[in-house]
Amino acid sequence: MFYPTYARRSDPFALMRTMLRDVDRFTPTRTAQPEFPSVNVWQGDEAVAVTAELPGIEPSDIDISVKDNVLTISGKREAPELPEGARWHRNERSYGEFSRAVRMPYAASDDTVEARMTNGILRIVVGRPEEDKPKKIEIKAA
């Protein structure tokens, strides 16, 4: 990379500042990192389903809420308790609080939402309300 400011000898830190700016530009920011949990969204005529990978989380530690057409999944992943004298070889999994919001194509009421957890996969099915369903219009004979 060419640093033209280097020619300006009066400021010895000019080159360093320019280089640091480049480092900042190429370092990914937090927002670029993947979200947790990853979700898949399924759609059909009668319902919308959201599946999320939540391994190692007790169903009681997950909060699901629906407001208008936004579905929010939040909770906390507890770190495993280390016995005395234990040491890590690898620590690839992550822990802490999480929250994820998914916008649905229609507003859902509480009684049409059903959530189920199997083997670390959360599945939420949101039924389509009657008023959102397309209405069939009869053609009258003239």
Binding site: V39, N40, W42, G44, D45, V48, A49, T51
Partner: peptide, 14 residues
């Protein structure tokens, strides 16, 4: 695999 009946995958992250 999760294969919900009458539903199609609309958006996938995993």
């Amino acid at each position: 695999p999760t294969n919900p009946e009458r539903l199609q995958l609309a958006y996938a992250e995993y």
